[in-house]
Design a protein around this nucleic acid. Structure first.
Lengths: 250, 250
DNA sequence: CGCCGGTTTGAGTCCATTCAAGAGGAGTGG
DNA sequence: CCACTCCTCTTGAATGGACTCAAACCGGCG
């Protein structure tokens, strides 16, 4: 058991431990990472595309999203992040941020210097492996999103997004997959699904009419999970939730 | 200089060294990885979604692509891979393959056991870091592809793909960005851009009519790189080519 | 109360799709 | 050598899903 159960870095440790066994020393090293807790208001930027940040953020509470602005001014949202997620792990090894991260709601974050993360990764191979693992899962989710916006129709796309959000909410211990507050405007949903906000509106209405979801202001309830998964062509394998990675020392 | 300039693993070493400095010992450790060279014919699978492979492939020559088959039978291609790319690095830490990899052309590959990679990563932090780095770049490319299929129109999407292919070809030392053999059918191009093969055909014709590309059977020539970049809303930053990662020991 | 961001709804348009058929080329086998 | 098959590429015509433009509605808040 880690020394300090109250450390703000517990959500990060939990993410790392999910897939890789960490010894007591390793866990202590994670919690001992220098950090600073900060509040970021909804709408504010955490990372800006093109910047060269020297720190990395871990979300303790709240939600944020990764996005890019394209040449014609349109926006593409490529991920939603929540408690325990490390939002710019990229900047630990990549010099220039290739996308922006913006708070969706008021967020509580822990700010960790990237060189501290590099140092701990250099000292503890299991931690390096856990960080790498987390990046691999990120990549898997990104590929699924590519498939989602590239090949699915509007209702399926949206339902898929709602399923993923529900499962990850539950998995990170901050909600229930069957009924949750969705912290996104319809315009943000549109940018995450490659649709327009108008069409998102109509499609949500259609999903409700088909009895798949029940929605109030920004609240979503899923009536029947099985049917929802079918309608969203959703299979959680790509999230790599339950897996335990093989130990590093082969 | 590494001991054996003729080792089949040179392309892999080159990929790793691109971003992270590796000592002579580290380079030797990479080249000393147990491996077996194999030929995979075009169309054959390298990894199948759902499988649990215990080896990892490095491409020595030829091309392959990552893809998923969705619930309705449609296909989404999420990446093209070429010389030096490690095609299923995922399987080093993730148990179940979340997508398939298929040869586009006849490929020469080196097969490396995943546990050997885990072992070398555990022993040499810089190698672990280089592998992690490679995964981060993969993720960045995946996000760009999500934006591409989600928010760009057909001509821009295709042009973007052609630009990326050209640059990566040049960067991996197997071709010229301004004129190359494109080893993909129009149906594969469609699955990589979220279009239909019919529309890919018409769009290629349009790009040619606009004087952006010159095409023969499966050969592409780009007349003016600057114009091509503009037409494809292409900015190579997301490929993280020229960067050198900060050394691990912070 | 009036503003404002977000949501909802309608009408018309368009980009990309679907369906369908023909052309071209490579490979196979009689 | 030609007939045949298979796959890919090409083209046309019609359809449709999602978009654009535009206006109205709604709830929260200063």
């Amino acid at each position: 058991m880690p020394e300090n159960p109250e450390s703000p870095l517990q959500p990060m440790l939990r993410t790392l431990k999910r897939h890789c066994d960490l010894s007591v020393d390793e866990q202590a090293a994670v919690l001992a990472l220098p950090h600073q807790v900060r509040i970021i208001e909804g709408g504010n930027y955490m990372v800006r595309e093109g910047a060269q940040p020297d720190h990395c953020l871990v979300i303790l509470s709240g939600f944020c999203f990764r996005h890019k602005i394209l040449g014609d001014g349109s926006r593409s949202i490529s991920a939603i992040q929540m408690r325990g997620d490390m939002v710019d792990l990229h900047n630990v090894l990549l010099r220039v941020a290739d996308h922006s991260v913006q708070a969706l709601t008021r967020c509580e974050v822990a700010v960790i210097p990237t060189n501290a993360i590099r140092a701990v990764a250099a000292t503890f191979p299991h931690i390096a492996s856990a960080l790498w693992h987390s990046t691999l899962v990120d990549g898997s989710i990104a590929r699924e999103w590519t498939a989602n916006v590239g090949r699915r129709n509007a209702p399926t796309r949206l339902m898929h997004l709602l399923c993923e959000f529900g499962i990850r909410l539950e998995d990170s211990g901050v909600g229930d997959r069957l009924s949750y507050e969705l912290p996104m405007t319809q315009e943000q949903l549109a940018d995450a699904t490659g649709l327009t906000s108008v069409h998102v509106n109509r499609t949500l209405k259609e999903l409700a009419a088909r009895g798949l979801i029940d929605r109030r202001v920004r609240y979503v309830a899923i009536a029947d999970w099985k049917r929802a998964e079918e309608a969203g062509d959703f299979n959680s394998t790509y999230l790599h939730l339950a897996e335990q990675a093989p130990p590093l020392a082969g």
